[in-house]
Each structure stands twice: as structure tokens, then as C-alpha cells.
Amino acid sequence: MSAHIVLTRIDNRLVHGQVGVTWTRAVGANLIVVANDQAAADPLQQKLMATTADSTGVGIRFFSLQKTIDIIHKAADRQKIFIVVKTPADAVKLVEGGVPITKINVGNMHYGKGKKEITKKVYVDEQDQKDLLQLASHEDIRVFIEDYPGEKKFTVDESLFK
């Protein structure tokens, strides 16, 4: 039996109100897993994110990418897991590590030098684009941009980057 992952979201802010409350409720998650090496080692960042999770009554765990890969298969059936990563590269590492991800929501990827606008909230550089297309190339993984539950979805494929 594989872990019950309801959604994986790429958001460079990790867990904040929109993720911790709106998305968690929309997907019916009861556990948020923040898979991020820096957050896993930063108690202050964890405390801030845990406050958001506590407000919705869901559990939250902070694991490095490797620890997520190592333990995700031990998750209980009753856990409806919402994984949050910071970058497309993090999602690629989880998928390559065997984490059974089927849906990836690209949420927030801030503007930075060398990044181009895909939507109002998603900016990518060449590596991000390559990673997103690699994820989308898996026939069992649906990758889409959706800022807020119920808003217009953009499927991630080659045409998105033209």
C-alpha cells in the first residue's frame, strides 16, 4: 500500500495561510509534509508554519527531501498527505526517489533575475522549466498551475513555455 498523497504543491513560501488553510481544506488533507532541507533544519521557520497548520487542525511534519523519500512509504492509510516543496527541483528529487506523487500543483514561484513570467504568480528560469517538463512527462503525474482552489488551471506542457 502506498502513501495516500492527496496533492503536492510547489510554493517558494512553503506553508502560509493560503496553503495551510485554503489548500489543505480543499484537498481534504489531515497532514502537511514540508519536504525541504532548509525548513527541516530551521526551528523558527517550523514554528511559524506549525501555527498556520494548527489553525486548521491538521498535523504538520518537517522532513528533508531524503527523509521524505525514506519514510513516506511508512505512512498510515488514514493519513491524507499534502506535500509542500519549495522548487520544481525538489519535486523531481521526490519523484525520482520513488515518492508516489500523482498530482503536482505549481503555486507560487516568485520573480527573480533570469526568470520569465508564466502566470501572475509563476516565474521560471531554464532549470525550473526543464524540471516542470520532466515532471509532466510522467504519464501518471498531472502537473498544473492553479493559484487558488477552483481558479483557472493551466496544464504544464511545452506550449505553456512558448
Rank of each mutant, 00 (worst) to 15 (best):
I81A: 03
T68W: 04
K93N: 05
K86H: 09
T51M: 15
I104N: 10
I69H: 02
I5Y: 07
D140H: 15
I32E: 03
A3V: 13
V122Y: 04
E151P: 00
I71C: 01
Q79Y: 14
Q46G: 13
R78S: 15
G28H: 09
Y123I: 01
I5N: 08
T87G: 01
D54A: 15
T119C: 04
E146T: 09
R13V: 12
F63W: 15
I32P: 09
K120M: 01
L14G: 05
S159P: 01
A91W: 01
V106H: 06
I101S: 09
P100I: 12
K86P: 02
A75T: 11
I145F: 05
E126T: 13
I10M: 11
Q134F: 15
T8F: 05
G107A: 12
Q79D: 15
K93P: 00
H138V: 13
T22L: 13
K120E: 14
S137K: 13
I83Q: 08
I118L: 11
Y148D: 10
A3G: 14
A136H: 07
G28M: 10
R25G: 10
D42E: 14
F82C: 10
N36A: 06
K103Y: 15
I104A: 13
F62N: 05
A136C: 09
K47R: 14
N36C: 04
V15P: 05
Q38A: 14
S137N: 13
A136W: 01
Y148G: 00
G97S: 08
D128G: 10
G28S: 09
